[in-house]
Amino acid sequence: MDLLQRIQRWYLINCNGDWEHSYGISITTLDNPGWWVKIDLQETCLEKAELTQQSTVERSFTNWVSWHIKNQQFVAFGGPENLDEILSYFLNEVLPQQGDPKFKYRVCIPLRDYPGSIWRLANASIVNECQLKILSFFPPEDSASYIIHDENSFKPFEELKATSLADAVAVAKPGDIITVTIEEHLFSTNLGYTDTVLG
């Protein structure tokens, strides 16, 4: 996977219907010439990351990099051909070394017998820029631990509750490594929250 795909996956893994409205990634050019990269770390597994001193490497007028973390933001500058070095540093150094494994992402895992209709909420932790590890599911007996797609999903959900929510089987289990995707209708749900669907 190339660097552009990897940074796109980092962005995607943090999109949850809320985060992307306030935070994100900016990549722009400088007039000296060069690149300026800002990556918001708030409400991500890197929100506690630190680079207390600005690190700068100057090789030539067009080959240089500088980066630091301030106010929960990774900020980097570089020469016109150093954008890949900046993104590599963030993905290969900052993320694996400072990603907080205790930071929990809330995700929806489809139920095996109700694909596309019913999901079960789970907590997950970061593995890398595109994968999460399922830690635990929300309580199976609590109907608030499930998300339904629409009115057509309500009937099977009622049937499921009539038997046993605890017996519903998700397509993944705690300890599984999953790859993030986004299910559009969960972003427009009226349940008061939105989630990333993994599969």
Rank of each mutant, 00 (worst) to 15 (best):
V169M: 09
L3T: 02
K155H: 05
S136F: 01
C15Q: 15
R106L: 13
A162N: 09
I7T: 09
W10I: 04
A172T: 01
I69L: 08
E43G: 00
P174I: 12
L41C: 04
I178L: 12
I126D: 02
E158T: 09
E183H: 09
T189C: 02
A144Y: 10
F74P: 06
D195Q: 04
F74R: 06
T44Y: 12
D100C: 05
R120D: 06
D84E: 11
S117Q: 13
N14V: 01
I147N: 07
L186A: 00
S55M: 05
T52N: 10
S153R: 03
I147T: 04
K102F: 06
S145C: 05
H185I: 08
Q131T: 08
A122L: 08
I25C: 05
E141C: 00
D176K: 08
S66M: 00
T196N: 01
I39P: 06
E141T: 06
N14T: 03
M1F: 07
T163S: 12
S26R: 15
Q53N: 10
T56R: 15
A166P: 02
L186C: 06
Y89W: 14
I25V: 15
G192I: 00
S60F: 07
Q54Y: 02
A172I: 01
V171C: 10
P115T: 07
T44P: 05
N190W: 01
F103G: 05
K161V: 12
Q42W: 04
N14H: 12
L12A: 03
S125Q: 13
R120Y: 10
L95S: 07
F187P: 00
V107F: 11
E20S: 02
D167A: 14
W64R: 14
L165W: 07
A76I: 10
L83H: 11
E151L: 07
Y89Q: 11
D176H: 14
F137I: 04
F61G: 00
I86G: 09
G34R: 08
T181N: 12
G199K: 04
Y193P: 00
W10G: 06
I118M: 09
V171Q: 14
T52L: 06
I69N: 08
Q42C: 12
W119K: 11
T56Y: 11
T28R: 13
A144E: 14
D195Y: 10
Q72R: 14
V169Y: 03
V65H: 02
I134H: 10
N123T: 12
G199C: 05
W67K: 02
L132Q: 04
L132W: 10
T56W: 11
S26I: 15
Q97F: 04
S88C: 02
E47T: 15
K155V: 04
S60M: 06
